[in-house]
Amino acid sequence: MIPTGPRPVAPFSHAVESDGWVILTGQMPTDPAAPDAPLPEGIEAQTERVLANLELVLAGLGLDRSHILQCRAYLTRFERDYAAFNETYRSFFPADRLPARTTVGVTALAVGALVEIDCIARRP
């Protein structure tokens, strides 16, 4: 668990590491400083918060976004939000360093979120 990381919404670790592989649990768009506050409005704001939360977890492990190899994203309103999600997501990574990614439409996510993202990173 990362002390500065978001409060978990279920029983899990923020990340698990084995042999340099780091598996980051899917992050929600909750505010670590105010975990009971309402979620940000809209897919762009929620995506930004999720990516910021992933960055907090990475930083707590001495890593950063350059160590991310793969992401999985889950969207509750796939057809409506996919394009806007992609624009926000794209801004998080350098154009020449996009990780592999899968995006899945789902019927619901914890805390009523529109988006959740998990990642696999590798320690150099």
Results as ranks from 00 to 15, higher is better:
residue 103 T to I: 15
residue 63 L to H: 09
residue 109 L to R: 10
residue 19 D to G: 08
residue 70 Q to W: 06
residue 94 P to D: 04
residue 7 R to P: 06
residue 1 M to V: 03
residue 61 L to H: 15
residue 43 I to V: 15
residue 41 E to R: 06
residue 24 L to P: 12
residue 93 F to T: 08
residue 65 R to C: 03
residue 56 L to P: 01
residue 103 T to W: 02
residue 106 V to H: 12
residue 10 A to D: 12
residue 13 S to H: 10
residue 58 L to G: 04
residue 112 G to I: 00
residue 102 T to V: 13
residue 104 V to H: 10
residue 61 L to V: 04
residue 4 T to R: 10
residue 49 R to P: 03
residue 35 P to A: 01
residue 119 C to Q: 10
residue 26 G to L: 02
residue 21 W to G: 02
residue 20 G to M: 04
residue 39 L to E: 05
residue 90 R to H: 09
residue 20 G to D: 12
residue 64 D to G: 11
residue 98 L to R: 14
residue 112 G to E: 11
residue 84 A to L: 13
residue 69 L to G: 14
residue 3 P to F: 14
residue 116 E to M: 11
residue 59 A to K: 14
residue 44 E to M: 00
residue 103 T to A: 05
residue 18 S to H: 13
residue 9 V to F: 08
residue 75 L to V: 12
residue 107 T to A: 15
residue 38 P to V: 06
residue 90 R to M: 07
residue 76 T to M: 12
residue 75 L to E: 02
residue 28 M to F: 07
residue 110 A to E: 06
residue 51 L to S: 06
residue 66 S to I: 06
residue 7 R to Y: 01
residue 49 R to G: 05
residue 121 A to K: 04
residue 46 Q to A: 03
residue 46 Q to M: 02
residue 26 G to C: 04
residue 73 A to M: 09
residue 27 Q to D: 07
residue 107 T to E: 15
residue 100 A to N: 09
residue 39 L to F: 07
residue 56 L to N: 12
residue 1 M to W: 01
residue 66 S to L: 08
residue 122 R to V: 14
residue 115 V to F: 00
residue 101 R to N: 07
residue 115 V to I: 15
residue 32 P to M: 03
residue 75 L to T: 11
residue 96 D to H: 14
residue 30 T to I: 14
residue 70 Q to N: 09
residue 58 L to Q: 06
residue 6 P to H: 08
residue 103 T to R: 10
residue 88 T to Q: 12
residue 95 A to T: 08
residue 34 A to L: 03
residue 63 L to G: 05
residue 102 T to W: 05
residue 112 G to P: 11
residue 23 I to S: 10
residue 95 A to G: 02
residue 4 T to V: 07
residue 23 I to W: 07
residue 43 I to T: 08
residue 54 L to R: 07
residue 103 T to H: 09
residue 69 L to P: 03
residue 81 D to R: 02
residue 50 V to A: 02
residue 63 L to K: 08
residue 116 E to S: 15
residue 28 M to C: 05
residue 36 D to A: 06
residue 74 Y to A: 11
residue 71 C to G: 02
residue 24 L to F: 01
residue 121 A to Q: 04
residue 40 P to Y: 01
residue 45 A to S: 04
residue 55 E to M: 07
residue 109 L to D: 01
residue 78 F to Q: 11
residue 71 C to W: 09
residue 42 G to L: 00
residue 124 P to G: 06
residue 34 A to R: 12
residue 104 V to M: 13
residue 75 L to Q: 05
residue 49 R to H: 04
residue 8 P to H: 08
residue 48 E to Y: 01
residue 33 A to T: 12
residue 96 D to S: 14
residue 13 S to T: 06
residue 79 E to I: 03
residue 115 V to D: 08
residue 105 G to W: 13
residue 104 V to R: 14
residue 80 R to V: 13
residue 65 R to Q: 11
residue 55 E to F: 04
residue 11 P to H: 11
